[in-house]
Amino acid sequence: EGEAHRVLFGFVPETKEELQVMPGNIVFVLKKGNDNWATVMFNGQKGLVPCNYLEPVELR
């Protein structure tokens, strides 16, 4: 579910809505907001990550 994206930079959450991710993680974007935040799914957890920390990736 969602579009696959690769994480470019590590992100440490500052609020409980945000999700910690590391460079190279593959996350699935469920929704992109107008505020430059994306709702993503990673390892069964859902949370917010900055859009500019993500790049689309083709999964084969």
Rank of each mutant, 00 (worst) to 15 (best):
L48G: 07
E1H: 08
V29E: 00
F28Q: 15
M41Y: 08
Y53F: 12
V57E: 03
N36W: 02
G24A: 02
N25G: 02
K46Q: 11
E18A: 06
V29N: 05
L8F: 00
M41C: 12
N36S: 07
V27G: 01
V57C: 12
D35Y: 05
L8K: 10
C51Q: 06
G33M: 13
V29H: 05
A38S: 07
L8E: 03
F28L: 11
L59Y: 13
M22A: 15
L59S: 14
E14H: 12
V12A: 11
K16H: 09
V57Q: 06
N34D: 15
I26C: 05
V57Y: 09
V21K: 00
L59H: 11
G47A: 03
L54T: 00
G47N: 06
F28K: 15
K46R: 12
V49I: 08
K16D: 13
R60K: 15
F9V: 14
E14G: 11
P50L: 00
E58F: 10
Q45P: 00
G10E: 14
A4W: 10
Q45E: 15
K31W: 05
T15A: 10
E55K: 09
N25Y: 06
L59E: 15
G2P: 08
W37G: 02
L8G: 04
G33F: 10
Y53D: 00
V21Y: 02
L30K: 09
F11D: 06
E3M: 11
R6L: 08
E58G: 14
V12S: 13
A38M: 04
T15H: 12
L59N: 14
K16L: 09
V27S: 02
P13N: 02
Y53T: 07
D35G: 10
T39Y: 11
C51P: 05
L59K: 15
P23L: 02
V12L: 11
M22I: 09
T39L: 12
K31I: 06
G47H: 00
F9K: 15
G44L: 01
L8I: 11
L30Y: 03
Q20Y: 09
Q45M: 12
P56Y: 01
E3P: 08
R60D: 14
M22E: 14
E3I: 14
G47V: 07
L54A: 06
V27W: 00
F28T: 15
G44A: 03
L54C: 00
A38Y: 07
W37F: 09
G24Y: 00
V21F: 01
A38P: 02
H5F: 03
G10P: 14
D35C: 04
G10C: 08
F28C: 07
E17T: 10
E1D: 08
K16Q: 11
V27E: 05
N34Y: 07
N34H: 15
G2N: 04
N43M: 07
K16W: 07
V12E: 13
F42R: 10
A4G: 06
F11T: 15
G2F: 07
G44Q: 08
V7G: 03
F28V: 09
E17V: 08
V40A: 14
E55D: 05
E55G: 05
P56C: 03
V49Q: 00
F28I: 09
G33K: 11
H5A: 09
G2H: 06
K31H: 15
G44W: 00
E1C: 09
L54E: 00
R6M: 08
F9A: 15
F28D: 13
P13W: 04
V57D: 02
K46P: 05
K16M: 09
N36E: 09
E17G: 13
M22Y: 14
Y53I: 14
E14I: 09
P13M: 05
V49L: 11
E3G: 11
G24K: 02
F42Y: 13
K32V: 09
F28P: 04
V21N: 07
E1T: 09
F28G: 09
E1W: 07
E1K: 11
L54D: 00
L59V: 13
H5S: 05
V21P: 02
E14L: 10
G24E: 02
P13K: 02
N52V: 07
E55I: 05
K32D: 00
V7P: 00
F9L: 12
A38V: 03
G44D: 10
V49S: 02
E17W: 08
W37I: 11
G2T: 05
F28N: 15
V40I: 08
P56D: 01
G2Q: 05
K32F: 04
I26S: 03
T39E: 13
F11L: 05
N25M: 09
G10H: 12
L30M: 12
N43L: 03
N52H: 11
P13F: 01
P56R: 11
K32M: 08
N52T: 11
N43A: 08
Y53P: 06
E3R: 10
N25W: 03
N25Q: 15
R6D: 06
K31A: 13
V49T: 01
E17Q: 11
W37K: 14
N43Q: 13
W37R: 14
Y53N: 08
G2W: 07
V7Q: 03
L30W: 05
F11A: 07
K46S: 10
F42W: 08
N25C: 09
L19W: 03
L8S: 07
G10T: 14
D35F: 05
E1N: 10
C51K: 06
L48F: 15
F11W: 11
P23S: 04
N36P: 06
K46M: 11
G47C: 05
E14Y: 08
G33Q: 14
V40G: 03
G33I: 10
L30V: 10
V49F: 07
F11G: 02
V29Y: 01
G10K: 15
I26A: 05
G44V: 04
G10I: 04
F11P: 00
D35A: 06
N36A: 07
R60C: 14
V40P: 01
G33V: 11
N52A: 12
V57N: 06
K16A: 12
K32N: 03
N52P: 08
V40R: 02
P13Q: 04
K32P: 04
G47T: 06
R60Q: 15
P23G: 04
E17K: 13
E17F: 09
P13V: 04
M22Q: 14
V12T: 15
E55Q: 10
E14D: 10
P23D: 00
P56V: 03
G47S: 04
D35V: 02
